[in-house]
Design a protein around this nucleic acid. Sequence first.
DNA 1: GCAATATTTAGATATTTGTCTAATTATCTA
DNA 2: TAGATAATTAGACAAATATCTAAATATTGC
Lengths: 95, 95
Amino acid sequence: MKQQEVFKAMADPTRRAILKRLQDGALTAGEIGETFDITAASLSHHFAVLKRADLVRTERRGQFIVYSLNSTVFEDLARMLFDLFPGRGRSGDQS
Amino acid sequence: MKQQEVFKAMADPTRRAILKRLQDGALTAGEIGETFDITAASLSHHFAVLKRADLVRTERRGQFIVYSLNSTVFEDLARMLFDLFPGRGRSGDQS
DNA sequence: GCAATATTTAGATATTTGTCTAATTATCTA
DNA sequence: TAGATAATTAGACAAATATCTAAATATTGC
């Protein structure tokens, strides 16, 4: 789990908006792009960052590439937070 | 609550390390600095970012400035996450 | 195989950001 | 008040990054 990649990925508002759009289910790159006012190339860059952080999964469906939230990282993400802000129940480390 | 400031602040490894150092209690800028191999000026910049994100609180104690974790933002941070990765119990919005 | 569509990759550029040195501000103590 | 110590601010610079246009790759359907 690349903590740094995850935090970096979350630091951009466009990428957080992408994650938010994926909450209601998987979407193709193009469908996601409709909502944003940037080129497909820029979007693709953001997808790459999200993938590297393992925040989204991809699956090719014919001509399209379908993106979906990888909710399994949620646990890791939560763990990181609890690790950074303790005194709330947990204690473990592993930075 | 400036979501963007918070995520940006968390995106830097030095700043996360600062937060971690503060887990065991408040420390002066100098004490925190001992652990890091960067100048006081650079550290000060990181403090400014953390303050802007409301992740730390400061208090002048004589010659020193004491930093401490602001654990109240934890709730906001957690809320942001639950908001980004739903289907785990909560639903609310407010991006 | 070829044209059309979907997406990514390559390369360029402007902005942001982390770091540094030097200078400034605030506080203490002699 | 002067000197020392703690920390921040100012200004410069290099590295990282978000964006763009143009070109490349993958897939479909004729």
